[in-house]
Design a protein around this nucleic acid. Structure first.
Lengths: 200, 200
DNA sequence: CCTCTATCTGGACAGTGACAAGATAGAGGT
DNA sequence: ACCTCTATCTTGTCACTGTCCAGATAGAGG
């Protein structure tokens, strides 16, 4: 139970490995990520992680699952205090989306990088689906129709989803230099201008 | 000069390595990519590539540069024969963008994956910039103003850029199952519906 | 107190990127 | 025709990686 132990058994290795894994990912990015480095960071033998996650991909999968959950939370939390205007609520989700991408670029890339996690499991799929359903809900509130029963509304979902995702991804890729140079406030205003094009 | 040689010197190794590199990338994706595998594919020693590209990152950089150029060409070629309506021309670029992503997913990911190519050089930056300028030109034709002198027009550029990019990236990430299940024609129609939301 | 099992260690193997030293051949000058 | 001279390619080595294996350890349950 004790997080810091000197004994043979760690006590809470799984949690510690996840935390260290995220650190390594944030510090060294995807190419610097290695099971052994994570193990070293926790102060444990190089093959200890295998028992909890199977292989390297297993750890990444667990990180991605956790990432999806935090990603959903980022959208939800961005909505508190914005009132009940459906447009503003959807926009707030977009803000949360973008904020998450900028705060945790490596995690964001891990989540949406298809080939970065090789064999997603059911749990990871569910976490990703939950995030998607959040946006679906936003659009349903806005249009008054379930996107699953109305293709125009589904097109709204995909448009909103695509434009935030594209904006975030291009920003991380360094492909939007003109936007990167802006101050935070300017960038927010610009993003609003861009995002609102799909919600009018 | 002869592409197939049995002698000590290959004759056109650089070109051959680029071709093999793209194959490996397409077949095994990013995680299966290795300098040695590329060398093996060409039938050359494991450290022969170093002389032409320095290190693994150098080969990836060259591939990305070439990828950007082909990416631009995909947008340009999608525009031939669509007439001179600015909206349709911009949409055609979007179609080319999406088509490229689906035809060469690994290359697409390489290009926009920031951390996948570690140190982009000036040539690669120029190739990426050229692709960006293509979209800028499309929007300028549509709005009659240079996006560099008009923020609303620049917001149009970024909106169009973001929405195609997001759509393509989410599709590749497998995050748009409802869209993936559609037939090609249905998907095209749906994408048009989504994309046109930013151009009206 | 005594098993029994989940947890963790240590060693091994093949594959990788990078580096260095050497072999080869073709190009350019004489 | 010959002879350097240099770009090109090979071979060998190193540290590092992921994965597998047999073993050590300790805590839980009887």
């Amino acid at each position: 139970m004790a997080p810091k132990r000197e004994s043979y058994h760690h006590g809470d290795l799984r949690t510690a490995l996840l935390a260290a894994g995220e650190e390594v990912l944030a510090e060294s990015g995807m190419e610097g990520f290695s099971l052994r480095q994570v193990a070293r960071k926790v102060g444990v033998s190089h093959s200890a992680p295998a028992h909890h996650f199977g292989d390297a991909n297993g750890l990444l999968r667990a990180l991605a699952t956790e990432g999806f959950r935090r990603f959903l939370r980022a959208m939800q939390e961005a909505q508190v205090g914005v009132g009940d205007d459906p447009r503003e609520m959807l926009y707030a989700s977009g803000q949360g989306y973008l904020a998450f991408a900028q705060a945790s670029p490596a995690l964001f890339r891990l989540i949406f990088g298809s080939d970065r996690v090789k064999e997603p499991d059911a749990e990871m799929e569910r976490a990703g689906e939950a995030a998607f359903l959040h946006l679906v809900g936003d659009v349903e509130r806005l249009r008054g129709v379930s996107p699953f029963e109305n293709e125009a509304a589904m097109a709204d979902v995909m448009a909103a989803w695509s434009i935030v995702h594209g904006f975030a991804d291009l920003l991380l890729a360094g492909r939007m230099k003109a936007v990167q140079e802006k101050s935070d406030a300017e960038r927010d205003a610009f993003f609003r201008q861009v995002f609102m094009r799909v919600v009018r």
